[in-house]
Design a binder for these strands. Sequence first.
RNA 1: GGGGAGAUACCAAAGUGGCCAACUGGGGCAGACUGUAAAUCUGCUGUCGAAUGACUUCGUAGGUUCGAAUCCUGCUCUCCCCA
Length: 375
Amino acid sequence: MFEIQKKDPSSGARTGIIRTDHGKINTPVFMPVGTAGTVKGVLQRDLKEEVKAGIILCNTYHLYLRPGTGILREAGGLHKFMNWDGALLTDSGGYQVFSLSDNRKLTEEGALFRSHIDGSAHTFTPESVVDIQRIIGADIIMAFDECTPYPCDYDYALRSMALTHGWLDRAVKRFNTTDELYSHRQVLFPIVQGSIYADLRKQSAEYIAEAGMPGNAIGGLSVGEPADLMYEMIEVVNAILPGEKPRYLMGVGTPVNILEAIDRGIDMFDCVIPTRNGRNGMLFTGEGIINIKNSKWANDFTVIDEKGPSDISRSYSKAYLRHLIISGEMLGAQIASLHNLAFYLWLVDEARTNIEKGEYRKWKNRMIVALAQRI
RNA sequence: GGGGAGAUACCAAAGUGGCCAACUGGGGCAGACUGUAAAUCUGCUGUCGAAUGACUUCGUAGGUUCGAAUCCUGCUCUCCCCA
C-alpha cells in the first residue's frame, strides 16, 4: 500500500506513495477535513482542480448521527453519496469522545454518549465503529480510541492508553472478520496515545506497531500542549513506528507544525485550521499569516497571494475578500477556505520537492521564518 | 395658526434625583481557533493613563439641590395630529 520514494539525508523526512483504489497519494500529504461529508464551503470539483487534494477526511461520529448509516448504505457508500472519487479517510469518533466529553461515559465495552443534535443516547464500541466505517466505505478507516485531553495526569493517561489498546485488539478482530461492502479495498490504521509521557508513548507505539496494520497514526497531540512537547512525542513514537509504513499525525496543524513533523518522519496530516480559521479571516501565505479582517487591508487592492498556488489566490484582492468576510458573505468563507487549502497542499508539495532534492532541512528552516510571521 | 410627543455616545435604544462614563443591540477595533457541536467565540470601544485614577459628557443657556442625563425656566431643533 505504501512505498517510500526518497529519504532526506539531512532529516527524518521522506516522500512516498500511498496506493488506494481511489487513486495514488503522494506523501507528505495534507488531507482537508470534511467532517460531515463536505469540506465546508468548498465544492468537490474545486477540491480536485483548485486545491489538488487527493484524499479528504470525514467523520464517523457525525455521519453516523446524520445522515445515518441507512442512507449511506442505500447511497452505496460515502464516495458515491458525496460525489467524491478521490480517496477518503474516516476518523473513528475518538476525537468527539474528547471534544464532546460532557455528553459521554467511557467503559471497557465502549463509549456511551448523547447526540449533540438531539440528546439521544448511543453507544460506540470498537466493533460498531468498524461496522459503521464499513458502511461509510472510506479507503482508510481509523480504530476507535480515546483522545486524551491536555493537561492529563499520568494515571489517567495510562488507563486511557490501556483502554485504547484493548479497543484496538477488538477493532482489528472485527476488521479481519468482516468484508468491504463496496468494490474497493479498505485498510485500518491504529492510533498511538499516551498523552505527553514519553514512556507511555513508547509503550503505545510498540503496541500499535505490533498490530501490523498497513499504516499507523499518532493521536492525542495538538490538544493544547506546547509545540515542543508535541515534537518530542513525535520523535519518541517515530523511533518505534515502522518506517516502511505511513505515519499519520492526527489533527495537525499549523504550517510550522507540519514542517516540523515532516522533518521527524510524519507522512500524513489533517487539520481544520485552513478551513475554520479561513472562515474566521485568517489567511496563510508564503509571506506570513494575514488577518484579513484587520483594517489595514481595507484598501489593499493587491491579490490575496500573488505567488499563490490557486487561481483563486491570484484573482481576488485583499480589500474585496476583507469586505466579503466582514460582511458575513458566504463567498468570503469560500474564497478563504479555498485559498488556505490550496496553500496547505502547495506547502506539502514543496516539502516533497525539497525532500527529493535532499535539501529539506535547509528549505524548512527558511520557510518557517516566513510562515510564522504575522503580516 | 392650535394641540401633542421628543432631543442620551458612531447608529439605534434603555435609564427619569445619588448604585451613571451611562443597560443592551448594531457598527468599529483587536484577539482566539490544531483527528470541526465553530460562517463561531472573547475582549475593548468619551479623553488621558500600563493601572489605581483624573478630567469632560446625555440638544442649548440658566436655575433648584449637599448631589442633575433625570426636577424647573427660556431658547433651538425634530416628529405627529388638527386647521
